[in-house]
């Protein structure tokens, strides 16, 4: 038997259903109903680096510039309180104060983590994580790495072809050595 050919004119929908019912609408509330404001072009593989130390929620709300809770004196680094935006929209300010933003900072404290991994670990849709990470980056609470694809050449930059090729070569050698 030979497999039947690809019909370029159109194809049938394949197989069983892969959709799952969303558990709740809560994630959309987190971002104040925003699904595509900022963070639109944040790649799912972009790495997020936390720049602050999340405060212990049990210690109560942290006050910027002040130590919160026992042991805080010995901590030289910043204690996380809701980061401030230069010109915050109400929705953005609310999202920064929420437990989801805190969770993102906890997950990224001390290790680089991709948007996709944050989404999986925090049980938040990728779109929501994008919005929250963009808000956190704007507030200076996180830094985002890998915004430009390392394996692609940029037509506007003649030297980027060689750089991309070098990255691909490292990937090739790395996989081959696994």
């Amino acid at each position: 038997m030979s497999p039947f050919p690809r019909d370029r004119a159109g194809h049938r929908d394949g197989g069983a259903d892969e959709t799952v019912d969303a558990p709740s609408v809560r994630p959309y509330m987190v971002t104040g109903g925003r699904t595509r404001p900022s963070g639109d072009d944040l790649p799912i593989e972009a790495l997020v680096e936390c720049l602050v130390v999340p405060a212990d929620p049990a210690a109560g709300p942290a006050v910027p510039g002040q130590n919160a809770g026992p042991g805080a004196e010995t901590r030289s680094s910043a204690t996380y309180s809701a980061p401030r935006l230069a010109s915050p929209s109400a929705a953005a300010t609310a999202s920064l104060a929420g437990p989801e933003s805190r969770r993102i900072l906890e997950l990224t404290a001390g290790c680089y983590l991709s948007v996709a991994e944050i989404s999986a670990h925090a049980h938040l849709p990728v779109g929501v994580v994008r919005v929250l990470v963009a808000d956190l980056a704007e507030a200076g609470a996180v830094r985002v790495h890998g915004l430009t694809p390392a394996s692609l050449s940029d037509p506007a930059d003649p030297r980027s072809g060689a750089a991309a090729l070098a990255v691909l070569e490292s990937v090739l050698n790395g996989i081959s050595a696994l």
């Binding site: 720049l51 602050v52 680094s77 910043a78 401030r84 680089y112 980056a137 609470a141 996180v142 915004l147």
Partner: peptide, 15 residues
């Protein structure tokens, strides 16, 4: 890839 200065305080050592 460079964030704005951390408004929430100094950066912590990372990895």
């Amino acid at each position: 890839d460079v964030a704005a200065p951390a408004a929430a305080g100094p950066a912590v050592p990372h990895q």
